[in-house]
Computed example of a mutant assay.
Amino acid sequence: MKIVVVGGTGLIGSQVVALLRANGHEALPAAPSTGVNALTGEGLPEALKDADVVVDVSNSPSFEDGPALDFFTRSAQHLFAAEHEAGVRHHVVLSIVGVDQVPDYGYYVAKVAQERAVRGSGMPYSIVRATQFHEFIAPVMDLATEGTRVRLPSLPLRPIASADVAAAVAQAAQGAPANAVREIAGPEIHGLDRLGEITLTARPDGRTVVTDEHASLFAGVPDVLTGPEDIETTATRYEDWLRTG
């Protein structure tokens, strides 16, 4: 199959492309650096010619409400127009566990709008929702650092390795459209502050964690990001990933 991966040069997308190629598919990474821009529509008709599946793992360059909403909705409009024209048979998109339960966080609202566009596109689809990536913890800590203190709330998270997310997305792309949501999470639940402590134990740099419920990107986010108790879980623990990464 020819599978076009929008955002195919990023953290998840590059791994998805590699997995699909290893399984014998023609996987094309589509990103501004390859001449394809879903936000403007540039290069989409050419990239999607003869494509069977489109995988969208692109991400907004901004977490601010307006720019994120504009990115996801405009990209979706251009993608679906090009997909219908090209005769694409399956659209796969990566989203976030709990995304529809955080109405006061603009980035999540934008992702909900993206999911809504997928469902209303008339295109057979599969939505893969994942919890926060292992790779996301360190940048959150950096943004929450003041001097030698890292201020983080105790919000429970169930982080997942990006490799496990990429595997689930690649699996969806090679299968039949589910026209439904699949949710996946890492194997363990920790508070974000505890994840910071685990990080600095494995990779000490002179900083210490201070629990502050009003700090970081996740300040005020409700306890919905771990998913239901029976959510599908992957095997890679955060501590093990830190040791081997």
Results as ranks from 00 to 15, higher is better:
V16Q: 15
F136E: 00
A47E: 02
V109N: 15
A180I: 00
A219M: 06
T211E: 05
V55A: 02
H25F: 06
R158C: 01
L225W: 03
Q174L: 06
V53C: 11
M123D: 07
S121P: 04
A117L: 02
F218H: 04
G10L: 08
R182T: 15
L192H: 03
G24M: 02
P177N: 00
K49W: 02
L192F: 05
I189T: 13
V102N: 05
S154G: 15
V221Q: 10
Y125C: 00
P124G: 09
F136K: 00
K49E: 11
V97Q: 09
A30W: 03
T201D: 08
P45S: 13
F133A: 09
P153N: 01
H214F: 05
H190D: 03
V150E: 08
V16K: 15
V4F: 12
S14N: 06
I137C: 01
P61T: 06
T145R: 15
T211K: 13
D223N: 15
R116W: 05
G220N: 08
D70L: 03
E188Y: 04
I3Y: 04
R89A: 14
L20I: 03
N179P: 08
G35H: 02
G10N: 13
S14Q: 12
L94E: 05
V109R: 15
I189R: 09
V92S: 12
V4P: 07
P159L: 10
P45A: 05
R151S: 06
A38I: 07
T208Q: 13
H214M: 08
R149V: 14
A168S: 13
S95V: 12
A180G: 10
V5G: 08
T73R: 01
S60K: 05
L69K: 13
H90P: 06
R74W: 01
A173G: 13
A27Q: 06
A172G: 00
H84G: 01
M123T: 10
E42D: 15
A113F: 06
L152Y: 08
R237N: 12
D212G: 00
D50L: 06
V92C: 03
A47M: 00
K2C: 02
I96N: 07
G245P: 03
G147F: 04
S162Y: 07
H84S: 02
Y107A: 01
F63P: 13
T40G: 09
L157F: 13
L152M: 12
L19E: 11
T211I: 06
G106S: 11
D212N: 04
L44W: 07
T244A: 13
M123A: 11
F72S: 00
M123W: 04
Q101F: 06
I198K: 07
D142F: 07
I231V: 15
V221A: 14
V169D: 10
D230S: 11
V181H: 07
R158F: 05
F133N: 09
D56F: 08
T201R: 13
D52V: 02
R119T: 12
Q15C: 04
T148N: 15
V92Q: 09
G41H: 07
T34D: 02
A219D: 01
